[in-house]
């Protein structure tokens, strides 16, 4: 860094002040709980096929959002807005990359492979 700090005592920095045991505990319990529900759904075979996949994916998304909010403390405040912006700009790329890849290879398999041979 080329400049002096705006916070003479680093522990006064807003990002240090943002830590909160209660918030972390909430994030910890909620995400563990959501994973438990997902596990229970799968082991009970409560839904079938695509429904189960969608339900667990939804629970995973909920757990991730809980972690972004309560563990990372992401929001639109001045200190966190760039982190949130960067994340919001990047997530569509994750989705594009995974969805487009699976889509193109699914249609490729229909065109070129014998179904079920695992090749």
């Amino acid at each position: 860094m080329t400049s002096t700090s705006t916070h003479p005592n680093p522990l006064d920095h807003p990002e240090v002040r943002a830590a909160g045991a209660g918030r972390y505990a909430l994030g910890y319990l909620l995400s563990l709980g959501l994973m438990f529900v997902a596990t229970a759904l799968v082991l009970d075979h409560a839904l079938s096929g695509v429904g189960l996949l969608a339900a667990t994916a939804g629970l995973a998304l909920a757990a991730i959002l809980v972690q972004f909010r309560f563990l990372f403390g992401l929001d639109l405040s001045e200190g966190q807005v760039w982190q949130t912006t960067a994340l919001v700009l990047t997530v569509p790329l994750f989705i594009l990359m995974i969805v487009l890849t699976v889509w193109m290879f699914h249609t490729l398999a229909l065109h070129t492979h014998f179904p079920g041979t695992g090749m």
């Binding site: 790329l93 594009l96 990359m97 487009l100 249609t107 490729l108 229909l110 065109h111 070129t112």
Partner: peptide, 15 residues
């Protein structure tokens, strides 16, 4: 730029 890459292999045989 994140939705164009397959044009490098159109001939792969996707639908």
């Amino acid at each position: 730029s994140w939705s164009v890459w397959l044009h490098h292999f159109f001939t792969m045989g996707a639908s």
